[in-house]
């Protein structure tokens, strides 16, 4: 069983993920979709950081008490994930700008992104 302190964090992570997915599925405006993708990213990052938490833990920087350090690996992974999220978002914005220049609108076609 996971520590009680963490339970709301996991629920928040799931909530952010599903709100983001809802935005992607229901919106047609490119900027709104990009913001939803940001929510999805954040939800996953919250999940990963929460995975490494220890109740009462400290930051893993030299303080002489190894036993209290929180797990450092998820933090390293999340650093990578954040940078990747930023890169993808910058590129998505560029694509949206290009689309706007060609069509004069930010709205996608009727079915949105989920058209198969």
């Amino acid at each position: 069983m996971i520590p009680e302190l963490l339970q709301p964090v996991f629920v928040i992570s799931a909530a952010l993920l599903s709100i983001g997915l809802y935005g992607v599925m229901s919106k047609r405006n490119m900027l709104k979709i990009i913001i939803s993708l940001g929510l999805v990213d954040t939800g996953v990052n919250v999940l990963i950081v929460a995975m490494g938490y220890l109740p009462g833990g400290t930051a893993p920087i030299e303080n002489g008490n190894y036993a209290l350090y929180v797990d450092p690996v998820p933090q390293a992974l999340v650093l990578t994930a954040i940078v990747i999220g930023v890169s993808v978002m910058a590129l998505a914005l560029a694509v949206a700008m290009g689309y706007y220049r060609k069509t004069g609108t930010l709205e996608l076609d009727k079915e949105g992104v989920m058209k198969w």
Binding site: F10, S13, I19, Y22, A50
Partner: peptide
Amino acid sequence: ISIAIFIVLSYFFLTGSAP
């Protein structure tokens, strides 16, 4: 769909993914 995803994920995160 997204509410279903929310229920499945939070159930799984709370019970299945015990860190």
